[in-house]
């Protein structure tokens, strides 16, 4: 498992314990007691480190190469997922995956950004940064969900919409804008969960819903910390400072009233145990969906309207 800078002490201690265990099993010397002591120390250390993570630590965690992706969660949260492809206009963008599935027996449409797990896959999926056809595929699947009265679940995990020539030619802005506009009126419950990075408009284009949740170590922001540092201080190396200033962690967004709830993560990050992490998501998702299914469509849409209307701070 790849360790991040701030969790180095944990990794080192873990390594030592493993070494001692190996030594005990191959030699006559009994070190059980020492190992136990060290394991207790490890527990305390983990608690100290993982409970006092800085925003920058969380940025690293959200970008962790082993962090579970949309397809990982789909596998654990849903049964019988069938992936559907294409925007019927131009292409099939692998940076967004979507399809139909069953959630505790209920048919749903699930859509999410999809990063690759290795370089080859990342190239195919343009590092989880969608082109317009990705957003148009998402919209097509959402409209289909409305026709057949299926709730929509969106998993958000992108650095942002793909910055490129082809993307601009095909109307990246229009594709994002269209999704914001149309998602406001989807006549089914929509639940959005930020599972990794919520990068700007590219994330928001899957993010208009009745409930917005964030995993504990995910981020959501108007721009990446590096981008912010470059813009504000003309120095991308000040990303760490920007991460603190920009208020991009789940806790910050909860405080700002942008998200409805934080989904706790497995100690040390979601990647330590995907099944357990999926269960933690399930614990929040299911009651939320149950609650939304009780509402009439006009109630649902009114609430959604109010939800977005009240975001923003100002004085008269």
């Amino acid at each position: 498992m790849i360790g991040l800078e701030f969790e180095k002490p944990v990794m080192e201690l873990k390594g030592k314990i493993a070494e001692l265990k190996e030594f005990t099993s191959t030699s006559d010397v009994d070190l059980t007691e020492e190992i136990e002591k060290l394991e207790q120390r490890l527990k305390k250390l983990e608690k100290d480190i993982y409970e006092s993570m800085t925003p920058w630590d969380r940025v690293q965690m959200a970008r962790h190469p082993e962090r579970p992706t949309t397809l990982d969660y789909i596998q654990h949260l849903f049964t019988d997922f069938m992936e559907l492809h294409g925007d019927r206009l131009f292409g099939d963008d692998a940076a967004i995956v979507g399809g139909v599935a069953k959630y505790h027996g209920l048919p749903v449409t699930v859509i999410g950004h999809q990063r690759g797990r290795d370089t080859k896959e990342n190239i195919k999926r343009t590092f989880g940064m969608p082109h317009p056809e990705g957003y148009r595929k998402a919209l097509r699947l959402m409209n289909q969900a409305v026709k057949f009265k299926r709730p929509i679940i969106c998993l958000i995990d992108t650095k942002g919409a793909y910055p490129g020539k082809a993307a601009e030619e095909r109307g990246q802005s229009e594709a994002i804008a269209r999704n914001l506009f149309e998602m406001a009126g989807m006549e089914v419950p929509v639940i959005c969960i930020v599972i990794g990075e919520g990068g700007s408009g590219g994330a928001l284009a899957l993010g208009i819903g009745d409930k917005l949740f964030m995993l504990e170590n995910s981020t959501y922001s108007v721009i990446s910390p590096e981008g912010a540092a470059a813009l504000l201080w003309k120095d991308a190396s000040q990303a760490k400072r920007a991460a603190e200033t920009m208020k991009i962690t789940a806790g910050d967004l909860k405080e700002l009233g942008v998200i409805d709830a934080i989904i706790p993560e497995v100690s040390g990050g979601a990647h330590r145990n995907i099944a357990q992490q999926a269960a933690l998501i399930d614990q929040m998702l299911k009651p939320a969906l149950q609650e939304l299914l009780q509402l009439s469509i006009p109630e649902l849409l009114d609430n959604r309207y109010i939800k977005y209307k009240q975001i923003g701070e100002y004085t008269l």
Binding site: D80, M82, H104, G105, L106, P107
Partner: peptide, 14 residues
């Protein structure tokens, strides 16, 4: 058949 099952009316959150 799976797709038809998804579209079977009256699905509920169990």
């Amino acid at each position: 058949a799976f797709l038809l099952d998804i579209h079977e009316p009256g699905g509920e959150l169990a």
